[in-house]
Amino acid sequence: MLEVRGLHAWYGKSHILQGVDLDVREGEIVSLLGRNGVGRSTTVKAIMGQVNARGNVRFRGEELVGRKPYEIARSGVGYVPEDRAIFADLTVRQNLALGRKAKAASKFDEAEAFELFPRLRERADVAAGVLSGGEQQMLTLCRTLMGDPKLVMIDEPTEGLAPMIVALVAQFLDQVRKRGIPILLVEQKLDIALELSERVYVLGHGKVVFEGTPAELRARPEIRKEWLEV
């Protein structure tokens, strides 16, 4: 469904991605692992068209490299950035409404978001900026689903959240997969990534240094030691 081949990306003069290859197939959660600064976030930003990139990103048969972010979003790629990018002055309801791409109703709607997270219904008309970190994470996930994405890329959804909320987010990601929406997940917490994912990629120095199932990664302590553990 998503095929990334030889993806290069730059921030100014520094060459962050040096030829990344990865795939996300139907019904999968795929995790992108690695230490800070190896280019995990840059990979999803490059797929989203937010940084200058070269190489090939084919999504459901379409080439995405060189297209504008809004065109990439319209082709069905959903993106939840690391900072969550909540519209703080707008209400929860308005944030959700902005997730819809056009006036047409989407498969996932406000009622469904409220059903999944009743807390959002209670706070529907409150400015999103006053929500807790966990509530904001729920909101940003639901906001992206409002646009009927065919694939979702989520950057560090559990960062800075309490363990109970982390479990809730993990549960939510599983539900998204069950709806038939594959996920490309950037995750720092190794246990969560290994538990949720069908396959994982480990990035090091802007390249993929390991690719396999969670079981295969567990069987390779030297990979964990060299590329993951701090």
Binding site: Q50, Y70, Y79, P81, F87, L90, L98, K101, T144
Partner: peptide, 24 residues
């Protein structure tokens, strides 16, 4: 709705575009 888009884009134009709106 255009007004809502403008309000959102005042603080986070990149996110508005990533949600599929023609920000340019």
């Amino acid at each position: 709705r255009v007004g809502l888009l403008v309000q959102a884009a005042l603080s986070k134009p990149d996110m508005v575009e990533a949600l599929g709106h023609n920000v340019p």
